[in-house]
């Protein structure tokens, strides 16, 4: 009940934040140098052509009018029309968001679980060989640039071993997958399309792995540090001195106490991972949200930039909200 009230309050706080984001992106994107109209018209267009195009996209209106139109559109769920493609921004985004979210959510979930398991394992062997090995590998993974790591994984996983499909999309077109959410694995599961499940899962392995390796280190370091802190705490020593078996100690006295500080870091990592997808999508020819947003920015496609920034901001706020709820659930001392 208290949790519901807390979530409700936080969602209300979301409104001014998003409104601020809307205003800021609207202004910033217009302050940036570059003209979206020129970029679609090509070199031979006349001034009159440009004016006509500008009128078509409403760019000839005064700034405040443009803003009000944009805002009105947002309230009716209309993100506007892409200057580049001429398609509906909302529709394009829906198609692109699914695959990227699928990638990021799977990768961050795996990274968090792996970090919990390895971090606790490592802390229990603090300063022994196993501990050092884990930490060095994590650090190594953290310091390799993602696109390079992606290329290496393709070389090994596809070119040399041939275990994984070529980096040319998200699912084999022959499987006739009906797109629903845009997240291929989810769609395949929903429609019960066996070959598509196998194909989309296989296509996910390498990009997910790239992302996991990239974000694992900070999570691991945090879990290990707080596990060590718990292991050295008076409370843990007391439980050990009362002769509780290893399994009880691990489950009841170490794990939850270790995890209390993880959620906010995991939320931060989720944000980082969302940013990293731009490169990863590029390397794996993954037609995702990152690629789409980047293209929009390069061509000054105002509606696309505005929509993508808004969605990213929304995702951030939502993920931090989830993190706070999880934190409160894990740590009884937190009052919400």
């Amino acid at each position: 009940m208290r949790i519901l009230r807390f979530v409700g309050r936080r969602l209300l706080q979301l409104i001014p934040v998003l409104l601020g984001v809307v205003v800021l992106t609207f202004l910033l994107v217009r302050v940036l140098p570059g003209d979206p109209i020129r970029s679609i018209l090509g070199p031979n267009a006349t001034e009159a052509d440009a004016d006509a195009a500008r009128a078509r996209f409403g760019l000839d209106q005064p700034m405040w009018k443009q803003f009000l139109d944009y805002l009105q559109g947002l309230f009716t769920g209309d993100f506007g029309t892409s200057i580049q493609s001429g398609g509906s921004v909302g529709g394009e985004m829906a198609l692109r968001l699914g695959p990227t979210l699928e990638l990021v959510v799977i990768a961050v979930t795996i990274a968090v679980l792996l970090a919990i398991w390895l971090g606790i394992w490592s802390a229990r062997r603090a300063d022994r060989v196993g501990d050092h090995t884990v930490r060095i590998f994590a650090l190594f993974g953290n310091s390799i640039p993602e696109f390079w790591l992606g290329l290496v994984l393709i070389l090994v996983g596809y070119a040399t071993l041939g275990w994984f499909p070529a980096p040319s999309g998200r699912v084999d077109p022959d499987t006739n997958l009906t797109p629903l959410t845009g997240a291929d694995l989810v769609d395949a599961l929903i429609t019960g399309n066996g070959p598509a499940i196998a194909s989309s899962a296989a296509h996910l392995v390498l990009p997910v792995l790239t992302l996991v390796i990239g974000v694992l280190a900070p999570l691991l370091r945090s879990v290990r540090a707080s596990a060590l802190e718990v292991l050295r705490s008076e409370a843990y020593a007391a439980a050990a001195a009362h002769g509780l078996p290893e399994k009880t100690l691990l489950r009841g006295y170490l794990r939850r106490a270790t995890l209390v500080r993880l959620p906010s870091l995991a939320a931060l990592v989720f944000g980082t991972a969302l940013g990293s997808t731009v490169l990863i999508e590029y390397v794996y020819s993954w037609q995702g949200f990152g690629q789409w947003a980047l293209r929009g920015l390069l061509y000054r496609d105002y509606p696309v930039v505005q929509a993508s920034v808004l969605i990213i901001a929304f995702a951030y706020v939502l993920v931090f909200l989830i993190a706070d709820v999880v934190h409160a659930w894990l740590d009884p001392r937190v009052k919400i």
């Binding site: 008076e234 409370a235 007391a238 009362h242 006295y253 106490a257 209390v260």
Partner: peptide
């Protein structure tokens, strides 16, 4: 525990918080 069990000096700190 079974042989010898300690009641710790600072009970608040010696109880697991979670």
């Amino acid at each position: 525990g079974r042989g010898a069990a300690i009641c710790f000096q600072n009970p608040r700190g010696a109880l697991s918080p979670t």
